[in-house]
Amino acid sequence: MKILVCISNVPDTTTKITFNSNNTEFNTSGVQFILNPYDELALARAIELTEGGNGNVTVVNVGLANTEPTIRKALAIGADDAIRINAAPANAYFVAQQIAKIAKEGQYELILTGRESIDYNGAQTGAMIAEIMDIPSISIIKKLTIDANTATVEREIEGGKEVITVDFPFLASVTEGVAEPKIPNMRGIMSARTKPLQVVEAIAVDTLSSISSFDLPAARSTVKLISTNESAKLIEALHSEAKVI
């Protein structure tokens, strides 16, 4: 099976977020970038599905040359080859148009993304790619199994889950549960340097949305401490002061 895994280069989860240029740009100075944790799960499942020479996993990223360490990481984890679409990822629609073009040309049977990237948290790109390609998509799945020509997935819903069957080709965005992240071994790290990484130019896309500015959350007031032996007072305060229970 040919699988395409869409990966995103995002700030490490411990990053303290600040902005530049009058709160219009994310300040990347000193920020460590990583492979988006949800995409890591998608990649791990793709590698499991193609184990034993049963297919090929390609990773695709929309980014400038500075995302290559993250792409090499994905290759070290076990992707067979990679494509970088050479453009800054302006917004989800832009990224989706780029990846949909690559995905159509490569005739992948399965396209996987993370449920969302941990920077802009849009959860948009996956379903947009599928709509542009006119193939089915299932968002936020926690289980994916394949039996001959049919896949069975479990999709999270409020207060439960749905078990869904779907034929190939399709796209799914994944969340925790679908696989455990894989840690690259030494052989993987060595071979990642020589695995193919193709760079292609981006196509022009209309700008339907743009971020005009960012804000940081307002600071919270200082904590009101209640002593352990008066714990009941907390419930009183939540009821009559904060009025939340």
Binding site: T15, I118, D119, P217
Partner: peptide, 9 residues
């Protein structure tokens, strides 16, 4: 945005 660490307009 940024998983609750900021807001985007």
């Amino acid at each position: 945005a940024f998983s609750g660490k900021a807001f985007a307009n």
